[in-house]
Each structure stands twice: as structure tokens, then as C-alpha cells.
Design a protein around this nucleic acid. Structure first.
Lengths: 113, 113
DNA sequence: AGCCGCTTTTACAGCTTTTTCACAGGCTGA
DNA sequence: TCAGCCTGTGAAAAAGCTGTAAAAGCGGCT
């Protein structure tokens, strides 16, 4: 893993991630996450509004090559969704793109191009 | 699932394809495509204004030799036409050249061939 | 040891996509 | 015009992907 020791805080809508402080705030409330959950959420928020493959997420968070049979990313996306849903009911942050990967989006669709 | 990592964005009239981001924009709006649809559209746009045989398309997208009885290319051209028609009614991007193949064209016709 | 919390793996149901099939209709050369 | 190959397309079958609960694994702690 080659991430800098100090990683900047990221804000995406209601979600604020401060990886360096091991802290996630949702609407100002602390969200209790495990290490893996925090790292995966950080990776997703760093890449917000983009479709990210499982391979990229796995490499970034687990630090080793992805095996297609490995479902860890899916399982942790599930955990994050549960916790985010409890924090902000009715809102969905992590979107599935079938066959491609996942995309974190906090705001309304951003127009691109 | 994902092919060459960094493929450049392509723009052809109203259609912009960003294969590296798994993204297609039509008049700035995201067009939701499946993996095969995206790859086929990318192959066509990369060869825009040229007649492309099914053999070439099949090799490029499916990565294996074409069998003459295989209608996959036709089926997916149909799917792309439907989705493009919904995005830009009245415009047709993918033209059939009977006995030869297909041709993607976004701009006005330059000449007949 | 037993318990606890976290991570990884497994299993399977439910979906979506892809492939294949069948047939209607189109095109072309003779 | 007609026979015969080509193309469009809906639909069924096959393949593949995702969500998720539950089991199994792994340290650390008391």
C-alpha cells in the first residue's frame, strides 16, 4: 500500500471522510466503521462520481491483486450501504454498475463533458 | 472484463465515448449501456465513417473468430440502435451496408460509397 | 480456554446480461 | 419476378453477476 501517511479530508454531500483521523462524519454524526470499511469508503469517495472496478478497489484497499472469485469488495460494499442507510435513510450513495463496478455519488448527477 | 486500461475518449457528433471510464454521453447525458454494448459502440465509433464487417467487430469485441451463423453483432447493433434512438429521436447513427457490414456516422454524410 | 470484534470465505437466491433460436421481411442478381 | 441469401428482432435458454446471510478463520484480551 502506497498511500501517503496524511490523507486529506474529503467531503461529498452529507459524507465527510477524514482518513488521517480515522473518522467519518455523516451529517455531522460520527459513523462507526471498521478499518476495512473506512478504507473502502475512502477509496470510493476519492473516486466519487466515477465507476470504479472491483479490481481497482481491491488493489487499493487490500493491496494485492484481485481474484475474480473474491467477493470481499461486494461484502464490504454491503456493510457500508447498511451503515450509510441507517445514517441517512432513503438515500443511496453507492451505486452498482452491473458488469463494471461501483460508483459513489453524494449529490445530484453531475453533468460532464 | 475490462480491456486495455487507458483508451482515449472519442467524440462523434452528439456521441462521446469514454471507454476508460465506462461512460457514454449523448448530448451530455449518460447513456446506460451493458458491457457488450459499450464495447461494440466503442469499436464502431473508433471506426466511424467506415464500413466495418461483422468479422472485424466480432474479433474486436468478442475476442474470438467469427462464425457466420453468429448473430450476436446484429443483436447488439439492434440494442444500440434502440438506446440511441431513445436518446436522440429521429437520428440514426448505425447504418447497415447490406452484404458488407455496419457503419457508424454521427455527422452529415460527406459522400456516398 | 472462552469471548469478542473484525475479516474472509462460502453458499445460494434472485437478477441481469448474453447467447441462441426462429421467423418475418428485405435485398439482389439472374 | 423469384429464389436465395441477408438482416431485424422478440423471446427463450444459458451464462454470469450481485446481494447477503451465515459460517469459518484469526488475533487479542481476560
Amino acid at each position: 500500500m502506497h498511500r501517503p501517511a496524511r490523507r486529506p479530508a474529503l467531503k461529498a454531500g452529507e459524507v465527510e471522510v477524514r482518513p488521517g483521523e480515522f473518522l467519518v462524519l455523516v451529517n455531522g454524526e460520527r459513523l462507526h466503521l471498521t478499518v476495512r470499511e473506512l478504507e473502502l469508503l475512502t477509496a470510493l469517495v476519492e473516486r466519487r462520481d466515477r465507476i470504479v472496478t472491483r479490481e481497482e478497489l481491491y488493489r487499493e484497499v487490500w493491496g494485492e491483486p484481485y481474484r475474480k472469485s473474491d467477493r470481499s469488495v461486494d461484502v464490504y460494499v454491503g456493510k457500508l450501504r447498511q451503515k450509510l442507510e441507517r445514517a441517512v435513510p432513503g438515500r443511496s450513495f453507492i451505486h452498482t454498475h452491473f458488469g463494471f463496478g461501483y460508483r459513489f455519488a453524494a449529490g445530484p448527477e453531475r453533468r460532464r463533458g
